[in-house]
């Protein structure tokens, strides 16, 4: 959800680079996203391969693929 906010604001800022309010909001959302990502990765495993470095062993291959769903 937060990474989507980042992407959405990123696209907006691409065409409105001088919008200070938007950039301010972007910074807030990026901060929330990075904190949430860190917390998720500590507890559940890496979301990007480089984050596997925070664990004691190579955890990237065991993470579910995003299309696996619930069945």
């Amino acid at each position: 959800m937060l990474s989507f906010c980042v992407v959405d604001m990123q696209l907006y800022l691409d065409t409105h680079p001088d919008d200070e309010e938007a950039f301010c909001y972007f910074k807030e959302v990026v901060d929330m996203y990075e904190k949430a990502k860190q917390k998720f990765e500590e507890n559940f495993g890496p979301l990007t391969a480089a984050s596997a470095a925070m664990h004691g062993q190579w955890t990237w291959s065991d993470m579910p693929l995003p299309w696996e769903g619930v069945r």
Binding site: L47, T48, A50, P66, G69, V70
Partner: peptide, 12 residues
């Protein structure tokens, strides 16, 4: 860089 998640959840 690839992030191993969907942009929006899908659970069919």
């Amino acid at each position: 860089v690839y992030e191993r998640k969907l942009q929006y959840p899908i659970n069919i």
